[in-house]
């Protein structure tokens, strides 16, 4: 399935009729640098588009993760608890949370549009 992006640099992808997965873009992991810690909403928590669902911490700083979807957290990628660096290694294949919800393409950018975005301004 196709990935869609929020301007806050998270991606979301429909994985089946009812579930989407959420991760961060390659640009985001590069900008953050070495990721050393992740905290997210837990199973059963609600997330809302544009609202914080967790924090990602690199050696240098902490950044908020903003949800690119409305819904309820149905899974958390627990691999990231001990190996948050997986987000640096393979950001487009490593998801952070799974949400019961639907991708709303009207509020998101296609991969092509996201990559064309001038991210430094």
């Amino acid at each position: 399935m196709e990935k869609y992006y929020a301007t806050s640099h998270e991606w979301v992808m429909q994985v089946d009729d009812q579930h989407v997965r959420v991760g961060i873009s390659d640009y985001a992991q590069k900008a953050l640098g070495d990721i050393v810690f992740l905290s997210t909403h837990e199973l059963g928590d609600s997330v809302s588009f544009g609202e914080r669902f967790g924090d990602v911490e690199s050696v240098k700083a902490v950044s908020e993760l903003l949800s690119p979807v409305d819904g309820v957290v149905s899974k958390v990628n627990t691999d990231l608890e001990d190996k948050p660096e997986l987000l640096n290694e393979d950001p487009l294949n490593v998801w952070i949370i799974e949400v019961e919800g639907q991708v709303d393409t009207s509020r998101l950018l296609s991969e092509e549009a996201y990559l064309a975005l001038d991210k430094d301004h």
Binding site: G33, D34, V36, S58, V59, K60
Partner: peptide, 12 residues
């Protein structure tokens, strides 16, 4: 420079 291509952890 805050860091170079290999990143803060590698440099550390």
């Amino acid at each position: 420079p805050l860091h170079y291509a290999n990143g803060i952890l590698h440099e550390h």
